[in-house]
Simulated assay, not measured.
Amino acid sequence: MFTMFPLLAISLVVYVILHFLVGDSWTASQLMSIPMVSGDVWRISFGDGFIIISMGLLFIELLRSTKTGSDSILNHALSVVVFIIALLAFIIVPGFGNSVFFIFLAMTFLDFMAGFIVTTVTARRDFGVSGGLGG
């Protein structure tokens, strides 16, 4: 069951919950600041933290996309659903049209595209189809 569930759906749920509990300004609120040797101060917002955690989940999803089987195909299909929901939220829902959510939207797109491409290339290799991406 866990292998079928797209991890970026967790990020989407977290964003939606924070948006409706705190408002759309939570992404700009400062999470922490780190003094640098140069004298600059690196200010990290909650939106930056959200993107970093979502990128970690995307990395795990990309690793999981290399597996074949019915679980991975269902995972790819659910990843498309997550992308469509995120796209609709970005276009339609007030407070979702910002850079943080757009970057997340791009990650959901990369997740499902990479999954389908890896699955297609793997299936072509497994069935011995010549030509195409792998040569």
Rank of each mutant, 00 (worst) to 15 (best):
L74M: 11
T120C: 01
N98K: 14
I85E: 01
T120P: 00
I117Y: 08
L87R: 07
D111N: 13
S79G: 15
F116V: 07
A114P: 00
I84R: 00
F101V: 08
T108Y: 03
I91C: 12
L110K: 00
V93I: 15
V118H: 11
I92P: 04
N98E: 12
L87K: 06
L110C: 14
S79V: 03
V93M: 11
G95A: 08
V100W: 03
L105P: 05
M113Q: 05
L87N: 14
V100S: 06
F90L: 10
A77V: 15
V100G: 02
T119E: 14
N98T: 07
T122P: 00
T122M: 01
I91M: 12
G115S: 04
F102C: 03
F102E: 13
I103W: 11
T108F: 09
V121P: 10
G95S: 08
G115M: 12
I103D: 06
T120M: 15
H76S: 13
V82W: 10
L105T: 06
V82Q: 04
F109K: 02
I117T: 07
V121W: 11
T122S: 15
V80L: 06
A114M: 14
I84E: 00
L74R: 12
F112H: 09
T119I: 04
V93R: 01
F101T: 10
A86N: 09
H76Y: 10
I117S: 13
F96H: 02
T119W: 15
I91F: 07
F104Q: 04
L88N: 14
V81Q: 05
F90Q: 05
L78R: 12
I92A: 11
A86K: 01
V93K: 02
A114G: 04
T122G: 13
N75K: 14
V121G: 03
V118N: 13
I85F: 07
L78D: 06
F83H: 05
G95E: 09
S99N: 06
I117G: 03
I92G: 04
F96R: 03
L105M: 14
A106V: 14
I84K: 00
G115C: 11
A106C: 08
A89W: 08
F90D: 00
I85C: 06
T120V: 12
T119H: 08
L78C: 12
A114W: 05
N98R: 11
F96L: 08
L74T: 10
H76E: 03
D111V: 04
V121T: 14
F102M: 14
A86L: 02
I91K: 03
A86I: 01
A114H: 11
A77Y: 12
A89Y: 13
A89D: 13
